[in-house]
Design a protein around this nucleic acid. Structure first.
Length: 784
DNA sequence: TCCACGACTTAGGACGCTTGAT
DNA sequence: ATCAAGCGTCCTAAGTCGTGGA
């Protein structure tokens, strides 16, 4: 919540009449079992505060709580101390055991990284001196051999991230290419020439003209503001005094960029391949780096190009100009004795750093929110792998504590301390509904929330115990759930919403993620809110996989795996926007299914024409014939004929285009007419069929042939129906995020091995690389 | 002591390419 | 062979969380 809103609403709240009412309400409202002690604390806090203090009240509450109740606090702290240390010892032991167990399964090898690294740097230096940076075949093979199999023997503790780091720096986006002189911004009806710096910015907008962004007023405003600034700094526009966005016409620019896009798309595949190959070769040396002497992938080695900031949701800064990043703004991080990659000709790096406690190769500060962007290791790098492994091990460790944690928060739902109750409810929500921690956000960002930042208006209570959550979470993705909750949770939420709370106020006014996480440390070292998401996601996956019978085809098993994956994605609220053509796609599939059913009915009619006795034998089989009304049949016929006409016309147009391209004579219109004759014949046949109710049967048709046809249609109909259901179910759920970040990959590997499904069906190439450690260390019996 | 900020993970959309239906 | 649908990858925004410096 923004401070501004907060103080405003709190100030409102203080207006005299309200204040006394508020107090009365609190004191008289005793329909729940709220202990008196708590009521008093709450009431006195409210009435004691002066107006000025009120504005700061929310922030200070935590302090008051600890200061005001020293005894209770101390007591809790003491009682926690003993189990805490015990827990710590135990978990460290398990973690070590886990690592050792993995180590034990594989033979160890590898020379000491430091020694190897030193040697390697020397080698690199020699190579760069000789200017033959390309590694020879033999050395490349050797690198392959020396790939870091950290999961077998690496010591993964300690804060040092690397002993040596050698890399080639970053790739800068190409410089701005000015527009051709006939492509101009039209201002107030006249083409105007812009200084090149301003033209670039205008072009950013022009290229996006048809996107939703460009139609967003905030985006327009921010863009135009920054555009005018650039324009002014570049000396202004000599042809016009540009100051009104509505007088700007970017359509020429848009058309130009569209044309370029088309051109790019239409180059031949062979040429495309060649271009790609050349690009790959030029970028080759940036794609990898040497970490402790071993070749490792670099992730985003390309510096982000300038453009207009595409903030998500209602981002107040969306549309602002993202400036071009200069070498002078870039800090490199590598070994002290590693060669420094040369900056672009005549330019300099901001700084060259040698910090081995961090896992980034370069960084710069972006100008939208003044935060830092990093060039980091690739997802399949050892460092990323190690932290992934640690993440999942931590989540697995939670298994051993979750029962105690749940017991504890269930108990504390009735605590006499407001803080404890809030923590208990928050923990419940994080555990049960997989909410994120929910840190405070400034009003320079989109208004999104997580658990701790939930506000009054995000939670609706429907007695006796139904809660409707409706808020925007990360990436402004809507979280909407109508759920039954624990009775005590419901009561507590009601208390948290009690006046003087009103829309705009924090539900958990005593909490923020750091308080909550500090509390979590008492249960288990390293436990934070996000661990619950990982734990519950992987636990859900394990449970879902346990339900899958080991039978059927590989594809059937994959479908079931994806269904399990989908459960996890739903738990985590991972959504994707329903694609623009989803609706039409579904309608098309429905039409197709209806049409296939119609074809089946026709076949069955033909069957009866050949042998009328069949109906007596199996009336149910022929039932659907009577289910189809004449109107429906007519509609289907029409639909079918229209589609045929369209198909033929399109084909004709296409054929002609091809002929034109090859400089050959175009087919005459009469040809099209001739081709469409078929449709006309069909139409005649259909109308006859419609009135008689009986289709014509071709002379060579037999009962067997028709039955085979019907069987084929049956299969196609079932498949299409299943496919449609899958499409509907999946239309707004994104499976990838949970597969990539939440589901312990060893579960997927276990499934692959136990159910004999090739891992390629479950992990894409990149995921196989990212999760190599899991693929090589989990077996068919592995459990989360 | 605290909170702004640095460093890291998690996230959905854009876009090009593959694939599978016809 | 064709072509759209959907998949995979890239891109970078948007979270979480711990800590270093005022």
């Amino acid at each position: 919540m923004s401070n501004l809103d907060d103080s405003k609403s709190l100030a409102d709240l203080v207006s005299q009449n309200k204040k006394s009412k508020v107090r009365k309400v609190i004191l008289s409202d005793s329909d729940d079992d709220l202990p008196l002690a708590m009521i008093n604390t709450q009431a006195s806090e409210t009435s004691l505060s002066s107006e000025d203090e009120k504005a700061k009240q929310v922030k200070k509450r935590t302090k008051k709580e600890s200061g005001g109740l020293p005894n209770k606090k101390a007591k809790t702290a003491v009682s926690k101390t003993e189990p805490k240390t015990k827990v710590k010892k135990e978990t460290t032991k398990t973690a070590v055991k886990a690592v050792k167990a993995i180590k034990a399964t594989k033979a160890t090898k590898a020379t000491k990284p430091t020694v190897k690294a030193a040697k390697h740097i020397q080698k690199i230096k020699d190579e760069s001196k000789e200017q033959t940076a390309e590694p020879k075949d033999t050395s490349e093979e050797k690198e392959e051999e020396e790939e870091n199999r950290w999961w077998e023997d690496e010591d993964m503790n300690g804060e040092i991230k690397w002993d040596s780091l050698v890399h080639n720096g970053v790739i800068f986006p190409p410089p701005y290419e000015p527009l051709p002189s006939n492509v101009k911004l039209i201002y107030d009806g006249k083409p105007v020439t812009l200084p090149i710096e301003a033209e670039e910015v205008a072009g950013f907008f022009g290229a996006m003209l048809e996107t939703d962004h460009a139609k967003n007023p905030v985006f327009q405003k921010n863009f135009f503001h920054d555009f005018l600034k650039v324009l002014e700094e570049a000396g202004g526009c000599k042809d016009a005094d540009i100051k009104d966005f509505d007088l700007c016409d970017f359509s020429d620019m848009y058309a130009y960029f569209e044309k370029k896009r088309e051109e790019k798309k239409s180059i031949s595949p062979a040429e495309k391949k060649l271009i790609k190959k050349e690009k790959d070769e030029a970028e080759e040396k940036f794609k990898t780096c040497y970490l402790n002497g071993r070749k490792e992938p670099v992730g985003n080695f390309r510096i982000e190009p300038p453009g207009l900031f595409r903030g998500r949701g209602a981002h107040p800064k969306t549309g602002k100009l993202k400036k071009r990043v200069m070498p002078e703004e870039i800090v490199l991080n590598l070994s002290a004795d590693a060669p420094v990659p040369p900056p672009p000709e005549g330019r300099n790096w901001a700084e060259v750093r040698h910090d081995n406690k961090v896992a980034w190769l370069a960084m710069w500060r972006e100008n939208i929110s003044n935060s830092v962007k990093y060039v980091r290791f690739g997802n399949s790098s050892s460092l990323k792998g190690i932290s992934d492994f640690k993440k999942f091990e931590k989540a697995r460790e939670l298994k051993n504590h979750v029962a105690a944690i749940r017991a504890d928060y269930n108990k504390k739902l009735k605590s006499e301390l407001m803080l404890e109750r809030q923590m208990a409810v928050a923990t419940y929500l994080i555990d049960v509904f997989a909410l994120r921690a929910g840190g405070e956000k400034s009003d320079e960002e989109a208004d999104t929330v997580g658990c701790c930042s939930l506000r009054f208006e995000h939670v609706f209570l429907k007695p006796p115990n139904v809660v409707v959550f409706d808020f925007l979470g990360k990436d402004s993705i809507r979280f909407y759930q109508e759920v039954e909750v624990d009775k005590q949770v419901f009561k507590n939420l009601k208390i948290f919403k009690k006046p003087p709370k009103q829309p705009g106020h924090d539900l958990f006014d005593r909490l923020d993620p750091s308080i909550l996480n500090k509390h979590f440390q008492n249960y288990m070292p390293g436990l934070t809110a996000k661990v619950f998401r990982t734990y519950n996601a992987s636990k859900t996956m394990q449970d879902q996989l346990d339900l899958i019978p080991n039978e059927g085809t590989v594809n059937e098993k994959v479908v079931r795996f994806n269904a399990a994956n989908r459960e996890v994605a739903i738990l985590c609220n991972h959504q994707r926007t329903v694609s623009k053509n989803h609706e039409t796609g579904v309608a098309k599939m429905n039409d197709k299914i209806k049409e296939m059913i119609w074809q089946r009915i026709r076949a069955k009619k033909m069957l009866l024409k050949l042998d009328a006795k069949l109906k007596k034998k199996d009336p149910a089989y022929f039932q659907e014939i009577d289910d189809l009304s004449k109107e429906d049949e007519g509609a289907l016929q029409k639909q079918f004929l229209e589609r045929e006409t369209e198909r033929i016309t399109k084909k004709f147009a296409k054929d002609n285009e091809k002929l034109k391209l090859e400089n050959e004579a175009v087919l005459p219109e009469s040809e099209l007419k001739e081709r469409l004759e078929k449709v006309k014949e069909l139409q005649k046949e259909f109308s006859k069929e419609l009135s008689s109710g009986k289709p014509e049967v071709k002379a060579n048709m037999t009962v067997e042939k028709l039955q085979a046809l019907i069987e084929k249609l049956n299969v196609r109909i079932t498949n299409a129906t299943l496919q449609l259901k899958d499409k509907e179910d999946n239309s707004s759920v994104a499976l990838g995020t949970s597969k990539m970040n939440y589901i312990d990959p060893r579960l997927t590997v276990m499934f692959s091995k136990k159910y004999d499904v090739p891992i390629e069906k479950l992990f894409t190439k990149t995921l196989r690389e990212k999760f190599k450690w899991a693929i090589e260390s989990a077996d068919a019996n592995w459990r989360f």
